[in-house]
Amino acid sequence: MADARSDILARIREALQVKAPKPHFKSEETQGQPVKVGKQWLPDGGETTEASLVILAEQLAKLKAVLIRVPDEAAAGVAVADLARAKAWKQVAYHGASLVRPVAAALPCPSWEADASFEKQKLEGCDAAITSCEAIVAQLGSILVSSASSGGRALSILPHVHVVVARVDQVLPDLATAIAQMEAKHGAQMPSMLSFITGPSRTGDIERILVLGAHGPKELYLVLVG
């Protein structure tokens, strides 16, 4: 008996001997690459940086994520320290990125560089995580983190609060642009995880009523520097 792989591939090739008609589309334009033609029909992400920032702020508000705009890195440290005091965080884990380290140093509570010496049980006990990100998608209010830019896979998902520190120039108009940037940056060597985070964790599983903080962070803050 042939192995399963050859069997299945042979079944597929045989099935595809008979061609299926190409779907009839509304316009001729749809004959090219899906995203090249589809991008212009998806939600607007803004033509200029200013327009993108307006859309981003609207999207984040609808998602119940909190946007904090600060002029510089020192102000980012102050904003996050205020947050730590207001929420009485006792232990914070952070990603050792150049944008994040000074913010962690300004915290009024103990903090731990999680990606330097990762321990999952210790991370489970942290109140909040601070990470950087790869990019921000204005169109959808999504924050793109990766196992490279956010201190691994667990840091941005296990603690109850996730704080992202980013620069304004990381804001991109739409998902297609963010994906193109990832392809250009990483090529064939993608990080083992890339995650588009769109608002705090949520569920509607009980009577379709929205509840935040199902398993991932209940609160999501985006501190935008610049």
Binding site: D115, M193, F196, T198
Partner: peptide, 18 residues
Amino acid sequence: PMTCYNTLYAGPRKPGEC
């Protein structure tokens, strides 16, 4: 607009990942 987490996985933990 987008579900909360859309995640792409490329392999297990890579060298340099924690």
